[in-house]
Design a binder for these strands. Sequence first.
DNA 1: GTGCTTGCAAAGCTTTTGCAGACCA
DNA 2: TGGTCTGCAAAAGCTTTGCAAGCAC
Lengths: 137, 137
Amino acid sequence: MNRTVIRRNSKQKSIIIASVKKLGNHPTADEVFTEARKLLPGISLSTVYRNLAILSENDELLSITNLSPETHYDHNTHRHFHMYCTECGKVGDIDVSEKNMEALFPDKYNGFQINGFSVTFSGICKNCSILKDSKGE
Amino acid sequence: MNRTVIRRNSKQKSIIIASVKKLGNHPTADEVFTEARKLLPGISLSTVYRNLAILSENDELLSITNLSPETHYDHNTHRHFHMYCTECGKVGDIDVSEKNMEALFPDKYNGFQINGFSVTFSGICKNCSILKDSKGE
DNA sequence: GTGCTTGCAAAGCTTTTGCAGACCA
DNA sequence: TGGTCTGCAAAAGCTTTGCAAGCAC
């Protein structure tokens, strides 16, 4: 669903896009805000939220809303899965073969017209496993 | 992760469980609250939240977070997918063959130890499609 | 100049928490 | 009776919104 309003460019918008790309690993709105402020100290959090929402609507970003309490944003808009570490909150990508994708993700299911999907695994990442082991937990 | 505290029964707790089962279709905390109040008008929303959290921790309920802005609760704790209608907010179940499950859901992935997963499709349900068609959208 | 976009502040929404009293075992 | 559970109210956390000023085109 694209906005029907005329879009304009602004310094803020391009800085927000650049920040998401630079951060790379599924930043939250607040992380984008922190990064964007390095380049434009006066930028406001609501501007970040507004632009992330618009970019998601226009499929220029993927918004991931079932990871943690916060919404994460991903500049990789291709179909892929996510892995969420319940220890450190880090988000990783999971690649799935195109064959499995097709088998799993039909366009329709019992009358539902499927437009998008979100797959998230939760668990413990390599780093946190090592940390836990070294603490003898 | 179970609580280590001793659990007691209460009228509120059993009414909350009964309400989730009666509502059936992935109710939110507020919907459970509304249902529970029919049976016990004095019950408080925080009691509902507290009990839903405990039941989820004990795997007596599945909590589905950020399907929508609210957390949904499911008395079906078996592995299955969800379908979220972006028009009416209704949540449906999607069954996937056990074979596909096994292929897709390994216990480990690149060092990640996978403990749980969440799969959500979003789109438009049958009812809403019909409504949209009849409006000529 | 028009009207989209921003920053600020305030509000909105769901969920959590502190505390005193109630109640289960 | 001891300690868990409840209800109330307030707060927390993330996100959205109203509005006047600023800026792109």
